[in-house]
Computed example of a mutant assay.
Amino acid sequence: LTLGIKAARHEVVVLTTGNTRILSDKWLRLMARHFGQGKEVVIGYAAPVAAIDPDSEEAVKEPWKRLHAFDTVRTAVEYLSWGLAGRPYRATCHNLAYRRSVFFRNKGFSRTLHLKYGDDDMFVNEVASGANTVVEISQGAIVEVPEMQPQPAHKVSKLRYGYTAGKLRTWSRVFFGSCSLAWWIFTGCCIGLALVGLPSLVPLIAASVLYLSLTLILAFAWRSTSRALHSRSLLITVPWFMTFEPIYNLWYRIKGFIKRGSNLSWS
């Protein structure tokens, strides 16, 4: 990457990868248009998609497919929404653009030469700000990354990001972690209301109505978001995944800590 950026003849570089599928002939124009407005970094989105036979053994792992789709969208919502709010902190190597002057001013990837992965996240975390960065998520600017083995690919990606996430400068993990905590508290309060009110059915009905109302709002909002990000549309499974996602993330954090040496270039 460093050699390619040095060899580039013009100021703006747009980065993608060899396995990325460009969906629109407007992609380059949409990613590059912001540089004329004084921006220095443009963060795009890349949607992972399965490039396998739908009848294969890999494709029929339905529960994992849904869980990984949920986790992928939630991760994207986290960093894209934070960027849209003026606090960019990470990006994807499949869809990213910036000025060469920013790259050289930051001394390139000099701070991450000890890492095998995460150079895109760490670089954007170092140079991006609300003033010089914009998030481009129009449909024509979204690209897809086909995966022949989507489930193993998701696991590897999560382990890699889990290692570099702790090194990123951001409050997003605290904010979205508090959202997960709020969901657990809300669920616990509904269960507690239903149990404390027994044998009367009025508290049980009230708790059920409250829980169902919020669940439906979240589920339909999530469905719209998933479709916009080219992911699998989820509905009734969203509350289940929201409840157990902190446990899922904790498991990968422990697993990533055990295998942390695999992320270092010297290992």
Rank of each mutant, 00 (worst) to 15 (best):
E245G: 00
F257R: 11
R260A: 05
E245H: 12
S265F: 03
T243V: 12
L234K: 05
W240A: 12
V238A: 05
G256W: 02
W240E: 05
L264W: 07
W240P: 00
N249E: 15
G261M: 04
I254K: 05
F244A: 03
Y248Q: 06
R232V: 15
I258E: 04
Y252E: 01
S265T: 05
K259I: 00
E245W: 03
F241L: 15
F241I: 02
F241S: 02
S265V: 02
Y252N: 10
Y252I: 01
K255F: 01
G261T: 13
S262D: 13
N263F: 02
G256P: 07
Y252S: 01
R232Q: 10
N263G: 07
L235N: 07
R232D: 05
R260W: 13
G256C: 03
K255V: 08
I247M: 12
I254C: 15
W266M: 15
L250W: 12
V238S: 03
R253D: 02
R232P: 00
S233D: 08
I247Y: 11
I247S: 03
K255S: 08
I258G: 04
W251Y: 06
W240D: 03
N249G: 00
P246R: 02
K259D: 05
Y248M: 01
W240K: 04
S265N: 07
Y248H: 09
W251N: 02
S233G: 01
L264G: 02
G256A: 04
R232Y: 07
R232N: 06
K255M: 07
P239W: 13
L235T: 15
L235Y: 15
I247F: 09
R260Y: 05
N263I: 01
N263K: 01
W240G: 02
I236E: 06
I258A: 15
T237R: 09
G256Y: 04
M242D: 03
W266Q: 10
V238E: 06
Y248R: 14
I236M: 13
T237K: 11
L234M: 08
R253I: 00
G256R: 03
I247A: 14
F257N: 06
T243D: 01
N249Q: 08
S265D: 02
L234G: 07
T243Y: 14
S233N: 05
L234N: 09
G261L: 02
W240I: 09
S265A: 13
R253H: 09
T237C: 10
P239N: 10
